[in-house]
């Protein structure tokens, strides 16, 4: 069998992300987020990123750490804690620019980028203040009633970061929870995509883990793969592990003051991934 070996290190991934780039982050809310990769970004000097995400703590942490110039999102939530406190603080300080979309428009933007078309038409957004954003334009149907539709522009990404349950060293990826989210679209919408996985397995062992339907990401979509056990912590990653609700509360409480954030950051973020994992499992 001939397949490429795309295994990479945290440093190699972060080295591909330059100031000002547009970075898509997979998962949904506080679910199967590539948190080990987010933590690697937090340890790096990169800044002025545009983050495109069905947002959870990835968005909150990157905003709090002043990594973000702009967020493209439909929501930012920790699920069991509905409002992401760091993101709220950033918004209420006017610290980040935003493009706020409907959840489905967001999907269409990724799909348009993945299919390499400039936009996809939809009626979603008509009449709502989503269209207060001057970057969103209408298009007239050339057919039938010639109705006006929203032309959802392609959300082109420089880099996508996703976390899957299993992967092989060639970059094929497998999800084992109910919902694949939009991670494959994120990868296809990006120039380069990096996938962290709970475990790297031999290609021939994928079907011991789950059915063929769980093989959602193929290696054409992926530039590099890295094994990061517990790498979605503290977000939800069943069946491997559930959200760490106690830790999420601790994270949310770090939004209360600069001192609280500094202490959280020193303990959990200004350390290597290995030390983070030791700190959260001890």
């Amino acid at each position: 069998m001939a397949a490429p070996d795309k295994r990479v290190t945290f440093d190699e991934i972060v080295g591909e992300i330059d100031d000002g780039m547009t970075v898509g982050i997979g998962g949904w809310g506080s679910r199967r987020k590539p948190m080990a990769l987010v933590r690697a970004l937090l340890r790096s000097p990169v800044k002025d990123l545009t983050i495109v995400s069905y947002g959870g703590p990835d968005v909150g942490m990157l905003c709090r750490a002043d990594k973000v110039a702009k967020v493209v999102y439909a929501f930012v939530s920790l699920d069991s804690i509905p409002l992401e406190p760091h993101f709220r603080n950033a918004r209420q300080r006017g610290a980040v620019a935003t493009t706020e979309l409907d959840e489905g428009m967001f999907l269409l933007g990724l799909q348009a980028a993945a299919w390499r078309v400039p936009f996809l038409p939809t009626r979603v957004g008509l009449g709502s203040d989503v269209l207060a954003n001057p970057d969103l334009k209408l298009v007239t149907s050339p057919y039938g009633e010639q109705e006006q539709l929203v032309a959802m522009p392609a959300l082109e990404l420089d880099v996508a970061l996703v976390h899957m349950h299993r992967g092989d060293q060639g970059g094929n990826g497998q999800f084992l929870n109910v919902d694949p989210y939009f991670d494959d679209l994120m990868c296809s919408a990006a120039t380069k995509s990096f996938m962290s996985v709970e475990r790297i397995v031999a290609t021939e062992d994928f079907l011991k883990e789950g059915s063929v339907h769980t093989l959602r990401i193929n290696r054409l979509m992926v530039s590099g793969v890295i094994e990061t056990p517990n790498g979605a912590h503290f977000t939800d990653c069943p069946p491997d592990y559930a959200r760490d609700e106690a830790f999420q509360k601790e994270y949310a409480a770090s939004a209360k003051s600069d001192e609280a954030w500094d202490a959280f950051r020193a303990k959990y973020l200004d350390v290597s991934e290995a030390d983070y994992q030791k700190a959260v499992t001890s």
């Binding site: 999102y73 509905p82 918004r91 935003t98 706020e100 939809t122 207060a132």
Partner: peptide
């Protein structure tokens, strides 16, 4: 989505638009 202030700097940031525009038009 938000209360008060401006879209650039709301007084209170809420959830976001979520799926509301798409739900109501469809």
């Amino acid at each position: 989505a938000m209360l008060g202030g401006t879209i650039a700097q709301p007084k209170t940031q809420l959830l976001g638009f979520r799926g509301a525009p798409g739900n109501t038009i469809n």
